[in-house]
Amino acid sequence: MTQPLLQVENLRTYFLSRWGTVKAVDGVSFSVHPGETLGLVGESGCGKSVTCLSILRLVPQPAGKIVGGRVLWEGEDLLKKSEVEMRRIRGGCISMILQDPMTSLNPVFSIGDQVAEGIAIHRRLKGKTLWQKTAEVLGLVRISSAKARLRDYPHQFSGGMRQRVVGAISLACEPRLLIADEPTTSLDVTIQLQYLNLLKEIQRRSGVAMIFVTHDFGIVAKTCDRVAVMYAGRIVEIASVRDLFSRPAHPYTRALLDSIPNLEEQVDRLYSIEGQPPALHSLPPGCAFAPRCPYATRRCDHEYPPEVSLNSGHMALCWRVA
């Protein structure tokens, strides 16, 4: 296999709060190879977004802090870079799409200005060439008659179009990794599909790698090559999409897959996982999922499970498969 584009090793990001240290990301490791799409799945508050922000070193300050681990970008540790170097990386090498297109754009600037900003910073273009490139990028995300709409303001666009503009901002400088933090969650279903297809198409053309944060397994199946399942700040299972859907090893992954409603079967109640995820400031000593796990043993309550390699690239964190 080729050298990974991004390699996250044992990343830990903690938040200091009134209730103690919140371990939002607690020892996460994964890698992303050029051109591939890694899905990051998990319920709300499991640390998906914080993981993404940690990669860009944009964890909310001063509450949040990256306390350990390494984030290797082509072998170089981003956590050791200076703020100026990081700025070159953000937008230039690694970019991100946020969840809500309604608030991601600055209401007082035309979209042309906003797309052009990144290009001006990283490519140092000016004047006509800059404007030309901006229109080009907007055309790339299928904004029709892009040139004419450069001077329009965000409120003149629909949600789906705004999210495409946000995509254009992120992709403007041809980054090699795009982190998409639930980019379709706030779009309606038909627009979602359109947007996913657009991202896929751009990926085919430019070879950009993606980290796709979502909690929708349908999107995972459609867009991702590999999937990492997160629970309480850790990755509990990581596998290729095919392996994950056909042979989920971790009980949590299995429970998530079971929660997807099946239209062929007639059921009285939909399946759901009992209980609540643990509070991240007082994690149990053993497996964090143990209190909700139907297969939990005494050992699970007291000892943290090891990483178990099942076959090439399939890893799970569970005593059952050990």
Partner: peptide
């Protein structure tokens, strides 16, 4: 706190740039 400031950071804007170009016009 608004997302467009986060997006500006993601795009690689410096602090001064965010203050002057992104925040100030919203104060007008």
């Amino acid at each position: 706190q608004r997302d467009f400031i986060a997006l500006a950071k993601i795009a690689g804007s410096s602090r001064a740039r965010i203050l002057i170009v992104h925040i100030f016009p919203n104060l007008v």
